[in-house]
Amino acid sequence: MDADQEKVLRTFLRDGRLVSIPAKAGKRRVLLEHIARAFEPGVKLPEREVDAVLRAFYETDWVALRRYLIDEGLMSREGGLYWRTGGPVDV
């Protein structure tokens, strides 16, 4: 992670929780990639389990987070199941 990405995370996260969703797409992408790491790539989960993880990050509007993750190609959904399909993978 570079210094700019770390700055975005420090600005928008407090104690691991999102304080607001950035309006700028680049900053939002940094945060979404950080949040996507909470999901195991390829593991399919029902919506309620995805929502529980996202609420831990942002109780105010976890539905918007879910939508952004899908729109950005970091998660996919089909038949009520969601799974991580993008973003960096820690090795």
Rank of each mutant, 00 (worst) to 15 (best):
Y82G: 09
R10K: 12
W62A: 15
W62S: 15
Y82H: 14
T60D: 14
A52Y: 06
R29G: 02
G86Y: 09
S76G: 15
R17I: 05
W62L: 09
E47M: 03
L45R: 14
D51A: 12
E33T: 02
Y68K: 06
K44Q: 15
R37Y: 01
A64Y: 03
L13Y: 09
V91G: 09
L74E: 05
V91N: 02
D61R: 07
I21P: 13
E49C: 04
G26C: 00
E47V: 05
E49Q: 07
A52Q: 07
T60N: 12
L9F: 09
L74F: 08
V43S: 07
R84M: 14
E47Y: 10
L65Y: 04
V30P: 08
R10N: 11
K44Y: 11
K27P: 00
E33Q: 13
G87Y: 06
E47R: 10
R28L: 12
G73D: 02
V8Y: 09
A52K: 08
A56N: 05
R37L: 14
R48C: 02
E72T: 00
R48I: 01
G16E: 00
Q5D: 15
A23T: 05
G86A: 13
L54P: 12
P88L: 13
P88M: 08
D2Q: 05
L65D: 02
L74N: 05
D51Y: 04
D4V: 06
V91P: 15
L74S: 07
A23H: 08
A3G: 04
D90S: 13
P46S: 00
L9C: 11
P22S: 11
D2F: 10
L9G: 09
Y82P: 10
R48S: 07
L65E: 02
G42S: 12
K27L: 09
W83M: 03
R55M: 09
